[in-house]
């Protein structure tokens, strides 16, 4: 249809071909967006519906509950979420994941801010060498097994610190911070130095407040990365199931063929066992999935404004 379009200029008036094209584009995007969103919605309604209806596949588009007569009617319940308290090992993995997200992100941001500031200092001894020393690690790694053997050697297996310390130096984030700080007028820093402020003070009082936007960017991406972390837990925590991250725990739940009811706390009270029987394997899987998605969806609106900054600055390499 584009070939037939002959009308020049005056593009504000749309031809019939234009309109068809626009409609197609819109339909295409709506379809793709639906595909992106529907699974999350479907997951959600499966966790807040009646579990029997879920098991028999009667929850397709809306959350359903049974009424007194046993028919499926629209409705929601949150008992599955409450029953998660009894799912074994879930609590510790949530705690570990929250702890690593908070601590790991905070340390990473501070380190990136500090290193990113220092590498802007032309006066540093062998500055460009050390900068390259840091940056080159982005493009090169020794391989999974040597890395694992190194962590073993450092005593970082079965150790919570393994979640935090290796992630502190993030070269990409250092580049982002450096690029950002370079865009801050140097005169601000100079005047502080003239007033007698040392490097640390300049960093604390001038640089940090001014680089809040970029620090927020790396913090939010770092937090999401920490929350989603799975591989290090899988590789390093073989003997410490209590240190598994949430994603690792979920991975185990998803792969356990046995009924997860068996994973509920053993020997609970009668009411706990009743709660346990309410949950079947699928519902536990769905509910735990939902629990690990919700925090991401909650920070998502705040993240959005940093997307472009995060990507674009990275393209401007140091």
């Amino acid at each position: 249809m584009s070939k037939k379009e002959t009308q020049p200029a005056m593009h504000i008036r749309r031809t019939a071909g234009d309109r068809v094209f626009d409609t197609c584009v819109i339909v295409l995007f709506l379809a793709f967006t639906f595909i992106c969103i529907f699974p999350f919605y479907y997951l959600l309604i499966n966790t807040i519906s009646d579990n029997d209806l879920v098991t028999s596949g009667r929850v397709n588009f809306f959350p359903m509950l049974k009424n007194a007569a046993g028919d499926a009617v629209f409705g929601v319940q949150i008992n599955n979420y409450l029953a998660l308290r009894n799912v074994q090992d879930l609590g510790s993995s949530i705690l570990v994941t929250v702890a690593r997200t908070l601590l790991g992100t905070a340390l990473m941001v501070v380190t990136s801010a500090w290193a990113g500031y220092l590498v802007t200092k032309q006066k540093m001894w062998k500055r460009s060498f050390w900068y390259r020393f840091l940056v080159i690690t982005m493009y090169f790694n020794a391989g999974l097994v040597p890395w694992y053997m190194n962590m073993l050697m450092m005593g970082l297996t079965d150790n919570f610190l393994a979640y935090i310390i290796p992630g502190m130096v993030a070269p990409y984030n250092i580049i982002l911070v450096k690029t950002y700080i370079e865009s801050i007028p140097g005169s601000l820093e100079e005047s502080a130095v003239i007033d007698g402020a040392g490097t640390l003070k300049v960093w604390l009082k001038i640089i940090l407040p001014l680089s809040v936007p970029i620090l927020a960017t790396i913090a939010i991406f770092g937090a999401v990365g920490n929350w989603n972390s799975f591989q290090d837990s899988l590789l390093l925590m073989n003997n410490r199931p209590d240190l598994y991250t949430l994603q690792h725990r979920l991975y185990i739940y998803l792969n356990s063929s046995s009924n997860l009811g068996a994973m509920m706390s053993q020997g609970g009270t009668v009411s706990e066992q009743a709660a346990a029987s309410m949950l079947n394997q699928r519902v536990i899987q769905y509910t735990v999935s939902m629990v690990s998605i919700i925090p991401i969806l909650l920070v998502y609106p705040f993240m959005q404004r940093y997307f472009v900054k995060g990507i674009m600055l990275g393209a401007v390499k140091g």
């Binding site: 540093m124 001894w125 130096v169």
Partner: peptide
Amino acid sequence: EKYRLFLMMLPVIILSFIFAYLPIWGW
């Protein structure tokens, strides 16, 4: 100042060395 700045940077360099370069020793 050049050495002062370097010393401030040193902890970061050491961390990077341990977790990004030292694994090569595992080769």
